[in-house]
Nucleic acid binder design. Structure first.
Lengths: 129, 129
DNA sequence: CACCTTGTTCACGAGTCGATCACCGCCTGA
DNA sequence: TCAGGCGGTGATCGACTCGTGAACAAGGTG
């Protein structure tokens, strides 16, 4: 039973809803406006929730060519994505860096964000799998 | 969800009321006078409230033929529509542009302008206030 | 025919995107 | 503690996308 409008191609991850056909991302009631590249990158990441993707792989998937040494495009777009996702859902962390390996997408169950006593939210150096 | 007395050929979105049979649009007490194309375009957009429609899709729906490369008709009519809607309801934003993807119709919920701490409201990244 | 409305196309300016560079901070190992 | 590798991100710039006023054509009306 197909819902009118063949847009069953919807990815969900945490409170994120990604409509592949439309290029639309909703997050907790709001709409996140992404550029084409940002959207493609997000999709590539979400399709492997929980898994680590190497930059070469991401680049090949999104850009369609081989990543050349020294090309920081992936990093830059990950940064942009993070920025927009954080604007939409402050405090939530979606994209995790694995130094030397790549990136991993994983929505976190909302943690205690407002805990002034434990003020050190520096880096997630404590965050290991 | 047809309320008795309501013909289901009436679309509503926010404070807009679109009577399909009559080609009539009411907004906030007044009547918005649209040309045929403008009306069809509005209907096409409203029928997918919250979703992004690509230009090709809009053109196919409204014009009935395939959009040719370089044809800016959709943009022009979106502009005209915006202009008339804004004249009818100043400040309200209905049609949102998603660069690289298309247009999205969504009436703004209400005007809680300055409430940055409101967590996850409509204030996602791209959504202007 | 003169006039008005509508739809189409053109053209220009403004704004956005994408690729790249540059600089900075963190981490690690010696 | 210092140096080097790695990653985050602001800045820049060319190319492209959009917004929109205006010109033009077609059709309707008196």
């Amino acid at each position: 039973m197909a819902i009118p409008g063949d847009r069953d191609d919807v990815l969900r991850a945490g409170e994120l809803e990604i409509r592949l056909g439309e290029g639309l991302v909703r997050a907790g009631g709001g709409v996140v406006t992404l550029s084409v590249r940002e959207f493609q990158l997000l999709v590539a990441l979400v399709r492997r929730v929980g898994g680590i993707l190497r930059r070469e792989e991401l680049y090949r998937t999104v850009w369609g060519t081989e990543l050349r040494p020294g090309d920081r495009s992936v990093d830059v777009y990950v940064s942009k994505l993070r920025s927009k996702l954080d604007a939409a859902m402050p405090g939530q962390r979606f994209i995790h860096t694995h130094p030397g390996f790549g990136y991993r997408f994983q929505p976190q169950p909302s943690r205690n964000l407002d805990n002034p006593a434990a003020g050190r939210m520096q880096t997630a150096s404590g965050e290991r799998l």
